[in-house]
Design a protein around this nucleic acid. Structure first.
Lengths: 218, 218
DNA sequence: ATCAAATTTTAGATTAGCCTAAATTATTTT
DNA sequence: AAAATAATTTAGGCTAATCTAAAATTTGAT
């Protein structure tokens, strides 16, 4: 059995690896975990001993198969609980993170099976992030950032990159949500900001915002 | 904020105090927590410093108002989650304990409010134990042990004393459950065992079993 | 009321997870 | 390719929660 802390490190490493790099640096982990590099080194030794990560000093880390399986099971639990909170307990999508962060560590196979069933086997969480299945299989997401599209493209919003309450609340206020159709009216060459149409209304969004909105072409 | 461990000690002290004594002994806590008396002493000092218990060395402990409030909030969460697992997730009453033991430490007022609402504000958990309300108010239970009644008394089963899976499964197998009507046919003087009628069927139960069944007179 | 037994506390270690400061290794610059 | 800088690890400590063994206190029996 792994401690909460170990699970959190594994999840952090998994998330950092998602950005594409082969290995993750000690500093990157330290920053994500709000801790110091020296503490990370201690934990890396421990996780390596348990064969959850591939680690040689000074060389960065990656997850072993075993480590990745654990990461996916934690992410599965996190996303199922987020879905549960939004669908059944009237949480907003910007309120779920901290609670799911606690719930993801609860150990009970039956609990998660029943949770999945109760939610009717959802494929994605309230932010559009895909939910790994019971075997840890995660369908790759085809979505791309809105900033990669051009004038006259029509897209469907499928997710967000930034999950911060601030960003999610901005989207709420503006009226954007998953499933919305977004048409690009104009791309401003100078700053890459966009003029878009959502729900028949026209908005201007910065390139920063566009980068954090995930869509698929309609 | 209190650690899981602190919460578990407080709950243990609360439960031990329920048996009626004014104070609880270090040894009793150690036994309940599956730890050593020396460890308990350390924790008692810490809890006393936080003003959660009344403690003077060698004199036993009791909870302060503050401590009792915390105990009740943990018990509230535990029992609400047990109810949830049984009512919504198809858990049996003998399967819920370990999971509820984890869930009771999740920190989120909104979560518990919504849980309570979702379950329609239940007054008792699946074992018949009363659920403290949001303010920590706990209605005293009027139930008594079946062993205190006599021939021809007719009772309604309202709870159990022993919560062990073994006992609960025995009740399931025999067909006893909360709400069942129990008529006492005979009390054997020699060993205080009982002959009872439940669902029109006659059973013999030992005085040990009778002691662990809670009922009210019909 | 004293002495033996039981209980409880103290003393001194241990482990997990964290820290700072110093040392080591890797990377970048010149 | 050497020097400067950045990243990482080691060394040594700290706190929370645990333990064993020994000391202190209370209880209970004569």
């Amino acid at each position: 059995m792994n401690s909460f802390t170990e699970e959190n490190y594994i999840k952090a490493i998994y998330k950092l690896l998602e950005s594409g790099d082969e290995t993750v640096s000690t500093n990157a982990i330290a920053e994500r975990m709000h801790t110091r590099a020296a503490s990370v080194t201690d934990m890396l030794k421990k996780l390596a001993l348990k064969k959850l990560i591939n680690y040689q000093r000074y060389q960065g880390v990656s997850l072993t198969g075993k480590g990745e399986k654990i990461a996916l099971s934690i992410i599965r639990k996190h996303r199922l609980w987020e879905m549960f909170l939004v669908e059944k307990f009237n949480f907003k999508w910007d309120e779920v993170h901290d609670v799911a962060e606690q719930l993801e560590h609860i150990q009970s196979d039956k609990l998660i099976e029943e949770l999945d069933k109760f939610l009717n086997y959802p494929k994605a969480d309230p932010h559009g992030d895909p939910i790994p299945d019971a075997k840890g299989k995660l369908l790759a997401r085809k979505s791309k950032s809105l900033s990669q599209f051009s004038v006259n493209d029509v897209c469907i919003m499928t997710g967000v990159v930034d999950h911060s309450p601030a960003f999610l609340q901005y989207l709420d206020k503006t009226g954007f949500g998953l499933g919305n159709e977004i048409k690009i009216r104009e791309v401003v060459e100078f700053d890459k900001s966009l003029q878009i149409v959502v729900n028949k209304k026209t908005f201007f969004i910065s390139s920063d915002v566009a980068k954090n909105i995930l869509v698929i072409l309609k």
